[in-house]
């Protein structure tokens, strides 16, 4: 019963934040700030994790394909696993870890110090001011981070596959080109956008309503809200991934 109400409240919160796009003034400076938080600040983690994912895919893929004498297909394996699954999911999880947790904690503290109530009493829509720009930024940032993840992942795969294990780079890149269809790219970007909206709205919701956490107030409520935000967003990413994949295959 409470769960159902919570879900409805969350849906209303997200809808309200999205519909506040029209009513909020000077939205774009706030969106720029959100792109900085979700984009630029998270670049290192995306680039590092992307490179290592590509490296390990190249390594694992090589040893599996080597048994069948089909090392030439390494590019296919690396690129399809990256584009279809690894990049959207891992990039979203990394962004939850860095930007999502920060968002939940920031909103939780703002709730705690009555900054959100202050916005409301000023006649400023607190959703519109705090949440809407983050959601708009996520619409661009998540696909962009995912694309970056794919790019460095492919490069990582070529590093371990060609440089260390001796697959011809030409063969590798040709099979990458051949394997990825525009449908795969569409699936990848659709996943990225969905994960972005889901995780950012979950994290914002948890932080925004940190005062509703039962049995905890103040700093403990903020920490509980942040934990909940990260756990729920991660679950949501993997569940949504399964649903989207099963629809598109």
């Amino acid at each position: 019963m409470d769960q159902v109400r919570g879900l409805g409240h969350f849906a209303l919160f997200t809808g309200q934040s999205l519909s506040a796009v029209l009513a909020t003034r000077r939205l774009w400076t706030r969106v720029a700030r959100a792109i900085y938080e979700q984009g630029f600040r998270c670049l290192p983690v995306i680039l590092i994790v992307g490179t290592f994912t590509g490296l390990v895919l190249g390594l694992q893929g090589y040893y599996v394909l080597n048994r069948f004498g089909s090392e030439a297909l390494l590019g296919v394996l690396v690129s399809l696993s990256l584009v279809r699954e690894m990049a959207p999911v891992l990039a979203a999880l990394m962004l939850v870890g860095q930007a999502g947790s920060a968002l939940a904690a920031e909103l939780g503290i703002q709730r705690n110090s009555e900054q959100i109530a202050a916005l409301d009493t000023m006649g400023i829509s607190s959703c519109g001011y705090l949440v809407t720009p983050r959601l708009l930024a996520a619409l661009f940032v998540f696909p962009a981070q995912t694309a970056l993840f794919v790019a460095v992942g492919l490069w990582g795969g070529s590093l371990s596959g060609s440089l260390l294990l001796g697959v011809d780079p030409g063969v590798y890149w040709a099979s990458v080109q051949r394997a990825v269809e525009s449908e795969d790219v569409r699936e990848c970007l659709l996943k990225a956008v969905t994960f972005g909206l889901l995780t950012i709205s979950i994290c914002a919701y948890q932080g925004f309503h940190a005062h509703r956490i039962r049995g905890a107030t103040g700093a403990r409520a903020v920490s509980a809200a942040t934990t909940k935000a990260v756990v729920l967003s991660s679950i949501a990413v993997l569940a949504a991934d399964y649903v989207i994949t099963s629809f598109l295959i």
């Binding site: 009555e114 900054q115 006649g123």
Partner: peptide
């Protein structure tokens, strides 16, 4: 509500400044 809020201000106990 909006017109009321435009005509009033609220000073919070903890100031609620945007840090």
């Amino acid at each position: 509500r909006d017109s009321f809020r435009r005509r009033c201000s609220f000073l919070f106990q903890g100031n609620a400044l945007f840090d």
